[in-house]
Write a protein that binds this DNA or RNA. Sequence first.
DNA 1: CGCTGATGGTGGTATATGCCACTATTGAAT
DNA 2: ATTCAATAGTGGCATATACCACCATCAGCG
Lengths: 154, 154
Amino acid sequence: MPQDALPGLNLCNNAMLRRATRKLGQFYDDVLAPSGLKATQHGLLFQIHAGREPAMSAIAEAMIMDLSALGHTLKPLIRDGYVETFADKDDRRVKRVRLTPQGEVKLDETMKLWSVAQQQFEDKVGAEQAAKLRAVLDTVADLNLEMPAAAPSN
Amino acid sequence: MPQDALPGLNLCNNAMLRRATRKLGQFYDDVLAPSGLKATQHGLLFQIHAGREPAMSAIAEAMIMDLSALGHTLKPLIRDGYVETFADKDDRRVKRVRLTPQGEVKLDETMKLWSVAQQQFEDKVGAEQAAKLRAVLDTVADLNLEMPAAAPSN
DNA sequence: CGCTGATGGTGGTATATGCCACTATTGAAT
DNA sequence: ATTCAATAGTGGCATATACCACCATCAGCG
C-alpha cells in the first residue's frame, strides 16, 4: 500500500511507468546478481546475440535508446570481455558489435537466471496478463508522439 | 517498426518496461524542456507538494525508490532552490522535505507543460487504455516478488 | 544510565541514459 | 574532384538510480 501514501502522481503515465520499472528492475537485478550482471546488461547481451553482429545504431534503434547512451552502456561489457566491436567492411563509420566466447558463456548463465525471474513474475501476474502488459508496452514504445508545436510564446 | 528489428527480447517483461520508459521519458522530457526540469524532477516536486512536508523515507517508499537515490536526485533541486529540507522536530534522524516558494512557482509551470504531454499521450492511446495501463503498472509496482530461495549451486 | 539493535540519512562508487558538440565517413550534387 | 549535407560514433557533462559502508539518533532493556 505504500504507493497510495500520497495521492496524485498515480495519474501520471510516465511516473507510473518509471515506478514499475524501478520495482521490476530491482527484482530482475536481484535474481541476476549471482552472475555479476544487471538485468539491463543481460538484455543488451541478448539483443546483441539475437542480431547478426548488429551495428550500434541498429541496437540503439531496436531498444529505443540514445546511441551515445548505448555506447556508454557497452563500455563495462567490453571492459569485462563479454563484447567486442569491429568496423563494418563496407562503411567505416559503422561499428558492429558481437559477443566474445566469454560473452556467449555469460549469456547462457544470465539466461538461466533471467528465466527464473521471468517465471516468478509471470506466476504472480499470470502469463496472460504479462503478455497483455508487454503488448501494451510495445504499443507505447511504438507511439508516434509529436511535440505539440512548441510553446506558444508568440 | 524498429522494435521488431531483432526478435526475442520482446518477451522480457523487464526489458519491455524499460524500453517503454525510455520512450515515454524522452517525450515527457521534451515537453517539459522549456521549464528546465526533467519529467522525473517534476514528478518529485509534485510528490513533495502533495505530501505534507514528507520525510525522505516516506517519499522514497511511495516512489519505490532507494532512499540514497532519492537523496541524490534531490540535490540538483535543492541546489537550484526549488526544494529545502529540515530536521523533524521530534526525531532528529528524520529529514523532511518541502518546496520553496520558487519551487511552488516552478511546479505550477511544469504542471502546465506536464498536462500537455499527458494529454498528448492519452489522445494517442485513449484515456481508457491509459488508465488501464496505469492500473496494471500499479499492480506490478505493488507485487510481492520474492527471491526464489537463492541459487541452487549445490 | 549505558548497551544494543533498529531506523533514517549521507557519501562513495558504478551503471543507465540523455543531450550536445565534435570528428570521421559517406554519398550526392555541382 | 570539391563541396556539402547526412549518417555513425565518441567524449563530456548531467541526471537517475542502486548498493554498500558509515554515522547519527532513537527506542527498549537491564
